[in-house]
């Protein structure tokens, strides 16, 4: 298969960027989107040109490294997949494909399609954990967790931190990311003692990073590779308001 790629090239956070057109030729339909970029890059490297920088690691949809806007959609067409799980058979032969980086003030571009998502780490550092030191845990089965709660917590915990929610949101809001972690921990009995502190601190950290506000449009959920529900955003809102006004 052949494609026309229009890829955003940008040398650094403050450098101007532009779309550059490349031809991707002889791409096997079984190739993943990243493998297609590998093929294009191999051509560029062989000609001594600077290949397209993009982030990737596990290439099986779990590490959360890859992520780009493909034809106007985070992780490209399809539901519940990351960019590495997108296969070229999804596209039409000869199609033009526009590739852009995640765009958000909180995710400055490092190079081309690579953005800095360390804002997510700082949000987690603010409280996305249960404060237990190694060695002080009680016997595992002394904490009973109703299966329904464990399942719901797992749904939320499936977040891979790729940033597609921010990329999809018209306000570049990180609410789904934060909600997933807050919900995961608030649903479990182990997470309850800290739930108030946690939600206040994480939301404050989220705001400090310059993400936008949630306007309840659900675009984040539609593009989330792990199909994390905005019901968790409702839970986050509840957790927050409860912590702010109704506890103690």
């Amino acid at each position: 298969m052949d494609f026309i790629l229009k890829v955003w090239r940008q040398n650094g956070p403050d450098a101007p960027g532009r779309l550059v057109t490349y031809e991707a030729t002889n791409i096997p339909p079984e190739a993943s989107f990243l493998e297609m970029l590998d093929i294009v890059n191999a051509g560029l490297e062989a000609r001594g040109e600077d290949p397209i920088a993009f982030e990737h690691d596990c290439r099986e949809g779990i590490c959360g490294s890859c992520g780009m806007m493909i034809n106007g959609r985070p992780h490209g067409p399809g539901r519940g997949i990351t960019t590495c799980q997108l296969y070229m058979r999804q596209f039409k032969d000869g199609q033009t494909i526009v590739v852009e980086p995640w765009r958000a003030k909180a995710f400055p571009v490092i190079k081309d399609l690579v953005v800095d998502r360390s804002a997510f780490d700082r949000i987690i550092a603010a409280g996305g954990y249960i404060s237990i030191n190694t060695g002080s845990a009680p016997e595992a089965n002394s904490i009973l967790v109703p299966k329904e709660d464990a399942d719901l917590a797992m749904d939320a915990a499936a977040c891979i931190g790729c940033g597609a929610c921010v990329a999809a949101c018209k306000n570049a809001s990180a609410m789904l990311f934060v909600a997933a972690k807050v919900a995961h921990l608030a649903l479990l009995p182990q997470g309850k003692p800290e739930r108030r502190r946690r939600v206040l601190a994480m939301v404050a950290a989220m705001d400090a990073e310059g993400f936008g506000n949630c306007t309840n449009e659900g675009e984040c959920e539609a593009e989330c590779p792990k199909n994390i529900s905005i019901a968790h955003i409702a839970r986050l809102n509840r957790e927050y308001l409860r912590a702010k006004f109704f506890s103690r």
């Binding site: 954990y129 249960i130 237990i132 190694t134 060695g135 002080s136 845990a137 009680p138 016997e139 595992a140 089965n141 904490i143 009973l144 967790v145 109703p146 299966k147 464990a150 399942d151 917590a153 797992m154 915990a157 995961h184 921990l185 479990l188 182990q190 997470g191």
Partner: peptide, 22 residues
């Protein structure tokens, strides 16, 4: 055995039976 205790305390959402046990 300590690892499982530690991870459960950290909130790792391991699969559960309906009774709530692991």
């Amino acid at each position: 055995v300590n690892i499982i205790d530690q991870c459960v305390a950290q909130g790792v959402p391991f699969a559960r039976e309906y009774s709530g046990v692991l």
